[in-house]
Design a protein around this nucleic acid. Structure first.
Length: 201
DNA sequence: ACGATGATGAAC
DNA sequence: TTCATCATCGTA
């Protein structure tokens, strides 16, 4: 049984989205289900949406009824329906007035933002609510993940965003190098064999 | 009121 | 590559 961890708080989220997205890897998304049972899921994939200047970010089109929460304080859920059927779970980051957020794209066992929310029973009811224990959906710190284990790639599905489409703002824990130990510790998988020159850095 | 459009996922 | 499916937002 994991000891109760202190949820990630405002200070964690009140930073640029790319830093939050990176640091969220290895952390746990905790959900308290309707039956009162809390489940924890290690975050392994995120995307950063940086603000009004980021053309892939919803907030770049200005404030609307949907995107208003992105302009608000950090540490609040931004949940919206995508393609008419998938709920996207984001957490607002950065200073108030800056429309930035991090999309939670994957946790261990659930790849894809739409599948993740479906599996955890997350829907629009969390939109605008804070990521705290009291709302039933929050984050807890995990084992820090070494940068060696993290891939950075362009974000998915934002080809329309001009120069911003290619920015490496998607963060993924390389599953081939992730080892899950009892208790959820993240470690580098043992290198089984070296077939070529050792890649440094 | 109407039409275009997705920060997807699954099937073919 | 096609399609399911619908809230959102610009346009009228």
């Amino acid at each position: 049984m994991p000891a109760d961890a202190r949820p990630l708080s405002f200070d964690f989220f009140n930073r640029p989205a790319d830093r939050v997205a990176r640091d969220l890897l290895g952390c746990r998304l905790a959900v308290c289900g309707p039956d009162g049972t809390t489940t924890r899921h290690m975050v392994v994939e995120t995307e950063a949406y940086l603000g009004a200047h980021d053309l892939a970010c919803h907030g770049s089109k200005g404030m609307t009824a949907r995107t208003a929460v992105m302009f608000g304080p950090a540490g609040v859920w931004y949940v919206y329906l995508c393609y008419g059927m998938h709920w996207m779970l984001n957490v607002v980051t950065g200073a108030e007035g800056v429309p930035a957020a991090v999309l939670i794209r994957g946790v261990v066992g659930q790849a894809g933002p739409g599948r993740l929310t479906r599996a955890l029973g997350i829907g629009r009811e969390f939109n605008g609510r804070r990521a705290t224990r009291s709302t039933g959906l929050w984050f807890e710190p995990g084992m820090p993940v070494s940068s060696r284990l993290i891939d950075r790639t362009p974000r998915i599905g934002v080809a329309y965003a001009g120069d911003w489409a290619a920015k490496p703002l998607r963060f993924v824990v390389d599953p081939g190098r992730l080892t899950m130990v009892e208790g959820g510790t993240v470690r580098a998988a043992r290198r089984t064999r070296s077939t070529g020159p050792c890649m440094r850095r």
